[in-house]
Design a protein around this nucleic acid. Structure first.
Lengths: 340, 340
DNA sequence: TTGTAGGCGTTATCAG
DNA sequence: CTGATAACGCCTACAA
């Protein structure tokens, strides 16, 4: 592999000039630039990214940290897939690298080390939740004022940057939709409470009911963990409570699909016996039988926005490392599962 | 950020010793090692990955190159999700970094540049197909004898490393399954022909039919592009040919689902009017109505295997950069769509 | 078992 | 506009 010195010699300039040309820095005579570029092409020379990073003291990478659980193929979920695509879009357009990192959700992840070892210049944390081990890691990051952003998960710490969707409002609208169709007995199958968005969904659910004076009924609140299996497992309980239910709001599409499959297995006819409104508008939503009325979340946009904000902070000289706090809107997609 | 020099001073050793301790290289007195580790901890020191890479002349990254098409969120497909998860598993266990790279399928991607700029030490190419622009890129890579591997796509060039699944056999078994149920009029909705696995499916389809003496009928061969939409579009044609069909073999789950939705929209009752066997066993397969009989492909394993093989070549001193050529087996998963 | 010292390919600062 | 020349932090023979 040719290096800068050889190019300089061939072009008859100094090494510094070669660097200037290839980095497009400073004013330079057209003729010398052409000579350098030509020499570089002849020698098949390109800047060595590692050496550049080293000299600059920056890796040029945006880290994307995601929970890793053996046997659970997380990418397969719509949530991660879309977020990652959005981040990829931003990273690509800004000329950064996208480094994928896996963490064990059960232990404290040493985010700081990523920066100390200079593997990343900034990072985005996906799938974080409010369990103690994770909070420790995130808070450390915040205290150090390092450039990072958590996706769709609130933390008490005001120093924690976040890009999220407005799940309180999204849930409110979902439940309101059912109410507007004339149903009053509305259950709720929520996901794991350690996710702030689960809590937000509960708030939205409550607000919608209270607004029209429907008494909250704790006995028709169910809990799963956002997996399809957990939805299926909830089916028997929901089936038992069917006389108390006109409809049910479910925290995500996967659980809703599992629930519907379970109920159908128990002899239910959907949506006749129970109206269902889900959440995410993943690919599976329109595949489901009946197709799901669901809340569309702009995951792709969220990922892109987070990445763009972070990388801007890194690039712009003026912009300080300030806390990011964005909340995007959701949209209700009406299909058959909520009745016609 | 503390650096090696400070640690060396605090520990009262030379910088070289600090490196040795942190890299676990060579014999050393326990006491000096302890002293160094203690000093490192006190100063919050960790090896600078960029500097290490620079000194070693290697990035320590495995690149994963995938096609990038604006507005098409590729990760959302089961295929990419699983492969990436598998690769992640291997990379993680080998201590490498996983760099995600996006290429424009329409133009020649300069893989060589990835190595020249030292952004990656090896790479895995996902979603490649036999269109001229892509072949040029892949062949360049091969000529240079660079460590890389193409996923699930054959090229004529014997220097191209590949990890694939045996789609010829998978398809054979799928079609055989239908035949064994007593059906003879078996159509085939295949995906785009520029993928070698499409060709392989056709081979398997033919072999199964020929083996039992069923005449090949070109008029019941259909083509889509592996998208759900293309399956839906094929529905009208298939519907028209329904009298010529007992069953249909479909190149992937997404097309099969689109096809079934389209047929149902035209008034078909499935699987009564048409038996369907699909391919991939993606998440959607069991969600479909009726649930899909489909060929399970070990994408996760394929990704892991490719990454492990490549990284081993990089690590092991003895193993030369040799051509990888692996073919994993598929498995038929029987559900309702093929009848009972 | 440990220290010494050269080198890795840039960037960036300072002259000129 | 261009050339010299220190860093940058670590790895690795080679020497001791």
């Amino acid at each position: 592999m040719a290096n800068r010195k050889e190019v300089a010699k061939l072009a008859g300039v100094s090494e510094a000039t070669v660097s200037r040309v290839l980095n497009g820095i400073g004013p330079m005579k057209e003729s010398t630039r052409d000579r350098v570029l030509e020499a570089a092409k002849r020698l098949n020379y390109e800047l060595n990214a590692v050496a550049s990073s080293f000299a600059r003291g920056k890796s040029g990478n945006l880290g994307v940290v995601l929970p890793y659980v053996p046997k659970v193929h997380l990418f397969s979920t719509y949530y991660y897939s879309e977020l990652l695509s959005g981040i990829g879009e931003a990273v690509r357009s800004k000329g950064y690298g996208l480094l994928l990192l896996f963490r064990d959700p059960a232990s404290v992840y040493d985010y700081i080390s990523l920066y100390r070892t200079q593997r990343v210049d900034a990072c985005i944390v996906l799938g974080a939740s409010a369990v103690p081990s994770e909070m420790v890691g995130i808070n450390q990051l915040a205290e150090e004022r390092l450039p990072f952003c958590v996706m769709d998960q609130r933390f008490d710490n005001p120093l924690v940057s976040i890009v999220a969707a407005d799940h309180e409002q999204g849930s409110y609208e979902a439940v309101k939709h059912i109410i507007n169709k004339g149903y009053r007995k509305i259950g709720f199958l929520n996901g794991s409470p350690q996710y702030s968005n689960s809590q937000d969904r509960l708030l939205g659910y409550r607000r919608a009911l209270q607004e029209v004076g429907i008494q909250l009924d704790e006995s028709i609140r169910y809990e799963g963990n956002y997996s399809r299996t957990s939805g299926t497992q909830a089916a028997s309980t929901v089936y038992r409570d069917l006389n108390k239910l006109d409809a049910i709001f479910v925290g995500n599409d996967r659980m809703a699909i599992g629930l519907m499959q379970g109920l159908r297995g128990l002899g239910c006819s959907l949506p006749d016996d129970l109206k269902v409104v889900a959440y995410d508008d993943s690919d599976a939503a329109s595949l489901a039988e009946p197709p799901l009325t669901t809340v569309k979340v702009p995951f792709f946009e969220m990922g892109r926005l987070a990445a763009e904000k972070l990388l801007s902070q890194l690039t712009d000289k003026d912009s300080e490392v300030s806390v990011i706090n964005e909340k995007l809107q959701t949209e209700l997609i009406v299909r058959k599962s909520s009745g016609n």
